[in-house]
Measured scan of single mutants.
Amino acid sequence: MSGIALSRLAQERKAWRKDHPFGFVAVPTKNPDGTMNLMNWECAIPGKKGTPWEGGLFKLRMLFKDDYPSSPPKCKFEPPLFHPNVYPSGTVCLSILEEDKDWRPAITIKQILLGIQELLNEPNIQDPAQAEAYTIYCQNRVEYEKRVRAQAKKFAPS
Score class of each variant (00 low, 15 high):
Met1Glu: 06
Ser2Lys: 05
Ser2Pro: 09
Gly3Ser: 05
Ala5Leu: 09
Ala5Trp: 10
Leu6Phe: 10
Arg8Ala: 10
Arg8Glu: 13
Arg13Trp: 01
Lys14Leu: 09
Ala15Lys: 15
Lys18Ile: 04
Asp19Thr: 15
His20Ala: 00
Pro21Thr: 02
Phe22Cys: 01
Gly23Thr: 00
Val25Ala: 10
Ala26Phe: 12
Val27Ala: 06
Val27Pro: 08
Asn31Cys: 11
Pro32Gly: 12
Pro32Trp: 12
Asn37Gln: 14
Asn40Val: 12
Cys43Leu: 04
Ile45Asp: 04
Ile45Gly: 03
Pro46Cys: 10
Gly47Cys: 12
Trp53Val: 05
Glu54His: 08
Gly55Phe: 15
Gly55Val: 07
Gly56Met: 07
Gly56Cys: 00
Lys59His: 14
Leu60Ala: 12
Arg61Thr: 13
Met62Thr: 08
Met62Gln: 04
Phe64Trp: 06
Phe64Thr: 04
Lys65Cys: 11
Tyr68Glu: 02
Pro69Arg: 01
Ser70Asp: 05
Pro72Ile: 01
Pro73Asp: 00
Pro73Gln: 02
Lys76Pro: 01
Phe77Cys: 03
Pro79Cys: 13
Pro79Lys: 14
Pro80Gly: 13
Phe82Asn: 01
Pro84Tyr: 03
Asn85Tyr: 00
Val86Thr: 00
Tyr87Ala: 03
Pro88Leu: 14
Pro88Ile: 15
Gly90Gln: 04
Val92Arg: 02
Cys93Glu: 06
Ser95Lys: 04
Ile96Pro: 01
Ile96Leu: 11
Ile96Val: 14
Ile96Asn: 02
Glu99Ala: 12
Lys101Gly: 09
Trp103Leu: 02
Arg104Lys: 11
Arg104Cys: 11
Pro105Val: 08
Thr108Ala: 15
Ile109His: 04
Lys110Cys: 06
Gln111His: 14
Leu114Gln: 12
Gln117Ala: 14
Glu118Ile: 10
Leu120Thr: 07
Asn121Thr: 12
Asp127Asn: 05
Pro128Ile: 04
Ala129Tyr: 05
Gln130Phe: 07
Thr135Ala: 12
Gln139Phe: 07
Gln139Ile: 07
Asn140Trp: 01
Asn140Met: 05
Arg141Glu: 04
Arg141Ala: 10
Val142Ser: 14
Tyr144Ser: 00
Tyr144Trp: 06
Glu145Ala: 12
Lys146Trp: 03
Lys146Cys: 11
Lys146Gly: 12
Val148Met: 02
Val148Gly: 02
Arg149Ala: 06
Ala150Tyr: 13
Gln151Val: 02
Gln151Trp: 02
Ala152Glu: 03
Ala152Asn: 09
Lys153Tyr: 05
Lys154Met: 09
Ala156Asp: 15
Pro157Ala: 13
Pro157Phe: 12
Pro157Trp: 13
Ser158Glu: 06
